[in-house]
Simulated assay, not measured.
Amino acid sequence: MRWIAYPVKCLICGILAMQIYFALQIALWSGLNPASTAFQRAERWRLCSWHWSCEVHSKWVPYNKISSNLKRAVLVSEDDIFFQHKGVRVEDMQKAWEKNQQKSQFKNAPKTALRGGSTITQQLAKNLFLSSEQNYLRKGQELIITGLLELILSKQRLFEIYLNSVEWGEGVFGIGAASQHYYGIPPAALDLDQAAALASALPAPKCFDKAQYCRKANIHFPTRQEFILENMGRVALAPIPLAPKNTK
């Protein structure tokens, strides 16, 4: 039995070492900006291979230089209670589980596919460290990284990293590159309509950028933009403080 115990111990140690690496990397980002994400590197390789010059754009913009219009629009589009939850939305994950269980009943549907239910923190965890492969092991690692992100970094810092790293088109990453690519202006100057349009792109950014990617995208951007505009006023850009307890 010793020959079984040794590789098991090695596997456990390897998994623990990986989590420590993730935690240390996240801790560095409390003061340093990520140079790139796993998703950005994968996309750069897909688009550029071994070429040094490549049409991949990214420009870091500090949180206070990003339009509040854009911040609110992204929250409506992706995670309207981001500043209130602890990283996951259990009810949404349960709905995603049920949807995937139904999908797995069809012959051509992969049984390990996961869809929906992801918060901004979960999306950030996936983009920063993980592959685009969808299975339950990767989802489990995503949840662990999500917990580390929420534990180590503030909500504002998480949102800042997300806005500066998320994909907004083919080879377009972060709001600095996106606002310049689509409108030729800095992120601070985005008005309501521009912010809502950019936020509507997030579920299918390549389709928003280039029609050739729209064959598999089932999304109507004008309708989504209208919904975002109607709901931007109800989202909070900071944690809502708890009401003081009545001591009487």
Rank of each mutant, 00 (worst) to 15 (best):
K210G: 09
E98A: 12
A113M: 09
L130V: 07
F82E: 00
E226M: 10
I81K: 11
G116P: 14
N218A: 11
A201I: 04
D92Y: 15
G140V: 09
Y162Q: 14
K95A: 11
Q102V: 06
E226C: 02
Q102K: 08
S104K: 07
G147Y: 10
R89A: 13
K111T: 13
K210C: 07
Q141R: 12
S179W: 02
F159L: 07
D191V: 04
Q94H: 04
S154V: 06
T121R: 01
S131R: 08
L124W: 03
R138V: 03
P110R: 08
K206G: 02
D191R: 07
Q134E: 08
E150T: 11
Y213N: 11
G87F: 00
A201F: 10
S131V: 05
D209M: 06
G116V: 07
K210L: 11
V88G: 15
Y162G: 09
D193W: 13
A125G: 14
F159Y: 12
W97Y: 10
T223E: 04
S132M: 15
S131H: 11
G87H: 01
I219C: 09
F83H: 00
K111Q: 13
F83I: 00
S165D: 04
R138P: 05
F227H: 09
S131K: 08
Q94T: 06
N218R: 12
I120Y: 00
D191A: 07
I152K: 03
Q180W: 05
F208L: 06
G169K: 03
G174C: 03
F173L: 04
L158S: 00
Y162H: 13
T119Y: 00
G176M: 05
S200D: 02
A197K: 04
L128C: 07
V88D: 15
S118V: 10
E167D: 03
A201E: 03
F227E: 01
F221S: 00
V88Q: 15
S154N: 05
G174H: 01
M93A: 14
A217E: 12
V90D: 12
V166Q: 11
I175F: 07
V166K: 08
G140W: 09
L190N: 12
C214Y: 10
L149R: 03
V166S: 12
T121K: 01
T121E: 02
G184Y: 09
T223K: 05
R138C: 04
E133K: 13
R89D: 15
A113Y: 12
K103G: 14
Q212H: 12
L190V: 10
I144M: 10
S132Q: 15
K103V: 03
K95Y: 04
K206M: 12
E226V: 02
N135H: 09
P205R: 04
K95N: 06
Q194L: 10
A197S: 11
Y213E: 07
V88P: 14
V166M: 14
P222Y: 00
F82N: 00
H181F: 09
I145Y: 02
L130R: 03
F106M: 11
R115A: 08
S200E: 03
M93G: 13
C214T: 07
P110M: 06
L202G: 04
S154H: 08
E91Q: 13
V166L: 13
